[in-house]
Design a protein around this nucleic acid. Structure first.
Lengths: 201, 201
DNA sequence: GTCTATAACCAGATAGAC
DNA sequence: GTCTATCTGGTTATAGAC
């Protein structure tokens, strides 16, 4: 997340460097294209070309298109975990919560162009018969549970409702920033949310 | 909007009853399918079948698929206008704003299943080279401008920011309700927003 | 184990029949 | 004026070549 939104974990086994390299390039390219164009509008040929992999060759690395999408979602889940973990360095829950919302300010240009990478995925994957919608929901659950915990540490009543309120604000702000292609909308809206956080302590 | 979310304006010319009837049935069916499945995942064959029109025949009524999508967006814009107009009956701006948010509570089941009919459209149509993204943005502009005006009537400072804050909350709540398939999330979140509105006056 | 040629299918769009 | 048979292109997926 954050500056390096489409980043993925480093490869570990140098024996399988090329293979893993291609696989990861495919997931990275797919993640970017899924964000920019949506899931069903993105073709495997586009993903292959963006990853510099021969077209049609995608099926060697992923049994089906859905499997590739699933890999993208799982990568996002990892990114969310890493992001939340990085906030532990902050001294108090209010500062940690503002470190969360600041992420969306930092990727405001990306958000204005293509929407929140998490929100658009959840929106498009919602209501699928396979488990992909639930997988996408995990991204949001991680954040909501984490935020709820922060509010609880602040000693506020109804920490879950506050977490939902905060993150709904972030997601709704991202949607409007995208709709109006206006990164500044994201910035000023998050400022509003941060003032709200400060008002609670 | 509201209870009859996919409703369209009545036909006017009984001479063209069948023709207009089919055209409107196509727009209504398309609107529902676009909401349920998304734009690019919806095929014209599905729309034709849902509207009980011969497949392939869609092109007699709409030059292209984009033209059909545009007709759906325009119909939504009209629905938004009608909805906002219906709130004029309310006595004061605070009550009018709560009448707005109440709409999303009333369609909470629809929202939980397929997302906000306005938000998902804007999300998917954003960043298109044709003017469809701007057309979709009009739906949101109408609501934001109207809400801004209500806040201004309440005499609050920064009415535009408050309008954005309110509607971002609604849209974000809809996204989370959809992600977790939980209509109650929409209900309780809107209650939170309504308390916030009350706290301003 | 890695990749390519091709199959099978389905989309949007059109020419022309009624 | 209304509708249908068909075409073209592109997509997912696979069988089999290297």
């Amino acid at each position: 997340m954050g500056h390096c939104c489409y980043a993925l974990s480093e490869m570990t086994d140098s024996h399988q460097r090329d293979r893993a390299g291609k696989r990861e390039r495919l997931v990275a390219s797919a993640g970017e294209l899924l964000h920019r164009q949506g899931v069903s509008a993105t073709t495997l040929a586009q993903v292959a070309e963006a990853a510099d992999v021969p077209p049609g060759n995608v099926y060697y690395y992923f049994k089906t298109k859905d499997a590739l999408v699933r890999a993208v979602v799982d990568a996002r889940i990892d990114e969310v975990r890493t992001m939340l973990g990085s906030f532990d360095a902050q001294p108090d829950p209010g500062t940690r919560l503002k470190a969360l919302t600041r992420q969306w300010v930092e990727m405001r240009d990306l958000v204005a162009r293509h929407g929140c990478p998490l929100g658009t995925l959840c929106s498009e994957l919602s209501g699928r018969d396979d488990g992909l919608d639930r997988e996408a929901a995990k991204m949001m659950s991680l954040i909501l549970d984490w935020a709820e915990d922060q509010f609880r540490q602040m000693g506020t009543p109804d920490p879950r409702d506050l977490a939902v309120n905060l993150f709904a604000g972030v997601q709704g702000g991202a949607l409007l920033a995208n709709t109006f292609r206006d990164p500044d909308l994201m910035t000023s809206h998050v400022r509003h949310l941060e003032h709200w956080i400060d008002s609670l302590s």
